[in-house]
């Protein structure tokens, strides 16, 4: 008997009738020297948070950074932007999902970029795990993995933002490289 699964629109269906799972990009062996795209969603403190994560990755792994700002934090990126991000980066880090719609959009962007072949680390605040999970399931990726940090991020001081970025770094790396290898041995 097939297992019942959750349809994010609230309808219970059988797994045999479910759509195929969205593909997940192959993980990298290492971040060493890779191109890292920061997809900044314009929520308060998202830019300094992601830039600090990027700075730490550059320091630790010698990655090359690029930035792109979401036009609207509340909605997933259009197909042309996804294609450009996939072409220009080896991995993408997006966030910060610090509200309902932006956490859902971050998860949606992550799922689509993964399907385009790019490993993604989305960063979501813990208050909005239900929305990220629901949107990922809606996009065909139930159980989609992302990094979390405590809510809220928007009100943090610059020092606290840097502290939070450092705290989430290992989880971000684990989402991007094969076998969850954080690459600590490379540091």
């Amino acid at each position: 008997m097939p297992n019942a699964i959750l349809d994010p629109t609230g309808t219970v269906t059988s797994s045999s009738a479910a759509r195929p799972a969205a593909p997940r990009a192959p993980r990298l062996a290492s971040l060493r020297g890779k191109r890292v795209g920061l997809l900044i969603n314009t929520k308060q403190n998202a830019r300094p948070f992601l830039e600090e994560v990027g700075r730490l990755l550059a320091e630790k792994y010698g990655v090359t950074l690029s930035e792109r700002v979401k036009v609207n934090f509340a909605v997933p990126e259009p197909e042309n932007v996804i294609k450009e991000l996939a072409a220009e980066n080896d991995v993408v880090i997006t966030g910060v999902g610090d509200c309902g719609s932006c956490s859902a959009a971050a998860a949606a962007d992550g799922v689509v970029l993964e399907a385009a072949g790019v490993p993604v680390a989305a960063i979501i605040t813990d208050s909005f795990i239900p929305t990220a999970d629901a949107m990922a399931a809606l996009r065909g990726a139930p159980g989609y993995q992302y990094a979390t940090t405590a809510h809220p991020v928007a009100v943090l001081t610059p020092d606290k933002v840097r502290e939070r970025a450092a705290q989430v770094l290992d989880d971000v790396v684990a989402l991007l490289v094969d076998g969850g290898n954080t690459g600590k041995a490379e540091a």
């Binding site: 609230g10 934090f73 509200c99 719609s101 629901a134 809606l138």
Partner: peptide
């Protein structure tokens, strides 16, 4: 309230259905 921060209504219905254990059509 942050006007742009709500998830789409169908996504919210799905989240609620999951938490309540009822079909979304009954919400």
């Amino acid at each position: 309230a942050c006007e742009d921060c709500l998830v789409p209504k169908d996504v919210f219905r799905g989240i609620a259905a999951h938490h309540l254990g009822v079909d979304g059509g009954l919400i």
